[in-house]
């Protein structure tokens, strides 16, 4: 039975990250006159996480039960993982694109596009559904934008398209 499972990978990853962070503390300057340096707390925490990661690794390696499958689904390979997590990956990707385009599209247009595109991706592929998605996107994002801009006085990113 393969002992390499998700828990082992996570534990090893945590150990690597902890080691890197612990090493980083050696580069912190000591402020003259300081009784306790800025490095103490980060060292305590990274050391603690490192210790726990070792325990986690031992526990994962010694576990006899098989690795629990994702909601009982059998996932074989990366392609299968993408198929199962298709919606989540798409949502993260659309959200990332929305953030990256904020500078040009602004919160109002970017928000409407994000909601419309994501709803259309997740929803049914019918004309009626697209129309409802468009209405939901314009009304909901428009209302939120108006509340924050006019009622709460927040200046949201305007982008390059809308006139200032």
């Amino acid at each position: 039975m393969s002992r390499i499972n998700a828990d082992v990978v996570i534990a090893l990853l945590l150990l690597v990250v902890c080691s890197a962070l612990y090493l980083d503390t050696y580069f912190y300057e000591t402020v003259p006159g300081a009784i306790i340096g800025a490095k103490i707390w980060p060292r305590v925490v990274t050391f603690f996480i490192g210790g726990l990661s070792v325990l986690y690794l031992i526990q994962s390696l010694s576990a006899t039960r098989p690795e629990p499958k994702d909601d009982g689904e059998q996932i074989n390979g990366v392609a299968d993982w993408f198929r199962v997590n298709r919606n989540v990956v798409a949502c993260f990707a659309f959200y990332g694109l929305f953030l990256a385009s904020l500078k040009w599209l602004g919160m109002l247009i970017g928000g409407i596009l994000f909601v419309f595109v994501t709803l259309s991706f997740l929803g049914e592929n019918t004309r009626r559904s697209f129309v409802i998605n468009a209405i939901v996107a314009v009304v909901c994002v428009g209302c939120m934008w108006a509340i924050f801009t006019f009622a709460l006085g927040v200046i949201l990113p305007q982008g390059e398209i809308l006139p200032r």
Partner: peptide
């Protein structure tokens, strides 16, 4: 859910 995600951003 998606409308709330947009709200989160704002």
């Amino acid at each position: 859910a998606i409308v709330i995600l947009a709200y989160c951003a704002i």
